[in-house]
């Protein structure tokens, strides 16, 4: 037992707790039950330990020990690769695929969560050593709150208006409102689509959002989440029954065509609304300096 034992244990415990809080299995079903969770809890434990150990190292003037953190960074970049590879492999067997942008988003969040855990461990141990255990608890709780705030990004419902719309055929062309979706040749398929399909129109709230929701990865993420939550009326070998999202070129509205098994408009709206806005899809043309310069003249 040394003077640092309790601070380190404290940092590790709170770091791991913060990982547990951030590790939620939801409709995305990822990480998968038990095995996936164990992997991430172990990595969270390692991250917390690294963060906690860095403090005593600095206190003892062992500054080179901080290089250990670079090992941590490499380690967590590997976590990101691992997530990306696993999800990409599995994606080809999904009825409605997640898409690369969504996978990248998930992989990035796994990496960043480990860093948050590391900071929690670091600050917890630091405040324990500098002040006392009560101050450390307060700091750790603040870290947990900040961590969960950082973790939750915005949702689709924050950036668009969602309206239900009717689907119709003009000859072989399938339309949601006035947005062309695809060409369906067979009468039998048309009947199935009219019977089981649902249409929604997403109207962007401003110019930035037009580009963000135009992103193909973001659109695929919407389709995937809707299919996971509401089920999907399709099987392998029926590519005509594919949920699709197309864009109105005039005003950037999206026409969402889905084939849910639970055909409840309110539920479908809330599912579409709670799809996360993917970090790599976000665009901010309004922040462009050259664009704004033109306005001032």
């Amino acid at each position: 037992m040394t003077e640092y034992t309790f601070p380190i244990v404290f940092g590790v415990v709170f770091g791991t707790i913060s990982r547990i809080i951030m590790l939620r299995t939801d409709y995305r079903q990822y990480p998968t039950y038990l095995h996936g969770k164990i992997i991430h809890l172990s990595l969270g434990f390692i991250a917390a330990s690294l963060g906690a150990l860095a403090v005593p190292a600095i206190m003892e003037k062992e500054f080179t020990a901080v290089t250990l953190l670079t090992v941590a960074a490499t380690q967590f970049r590997d976590v990101r690769n691992m997530e990306r590879n696993t999800l990409t492999e599995v994606d080809s067997y999904e009825l409605v695929s997640r898409g690369k942008t969504y996978i990248e988003g998930i992989a990035v969040s796994f990496e960043s969560r480990n860093y948050l855990v590391m900071f929690t461990g670091f600050l917890g141990t630091l405040s324990f050593i500098i002040w006392n255990v009560f101050a450390a608890i307060i700091v750790a709780v603040i870290c947990l709150i900040v961590g969960s705030k950082l973790m939750s990004g915005s949702k689709i419902e924050d950036i668009v208006d969602i309206e239900q719309s009717k689907i119709s055929f003009d000859g072989a062309g399938l339309y949601v409102d006035n947005i062309y979706i695809m060409n369906i040749g067979l009468e039998e398929r048309k009947e199935e689509i009219l019977k089981y399909g649902m249409g929604f129109i997403l109207t962007p709230k401003n110019i930035n959002i037009v580009t963000t929701i135009g992103n193909l990865g973001q659109r695929q993420a919407i389709l995937h989440d809707v299919s996971v939550s509401l089920g999907v009326f399709r099987d392998s070998g029926t590519p005509a029954l594919t949920p699709l999202i197309k864009r109105d070129l005039d005003d950037g509205r999206l026409g969402v065509f889905i084939l849910p098994q639970i055909r409840d408009v309110a539920k479908a709206k809330s599912v579409i609304g709670s799809v996360p806005v993917l970090e790599s899809a976000v665009r901010m043309p309004s922040e462009s300096k050259s664009l704004n310069k033109g306005d001032k003249v």
Binding site: A172, N183, G185, R189, P239, A240
Partner: peptide, 24 residues
């Protein structure tokens, strides 16, 4: 329609109508 739906199922393709009497 019958031939198109069969080929659609067999090949995992989609039957598109170019006109009333021409499917691909």
């Amino acid at each position: 329609e019958y031939v198109a739906s069969n080929i659609e199922a067999i090949t995992d393709g989609i039957a598109h109508a170019l006109s009333e009497d021409l499917f691909i």
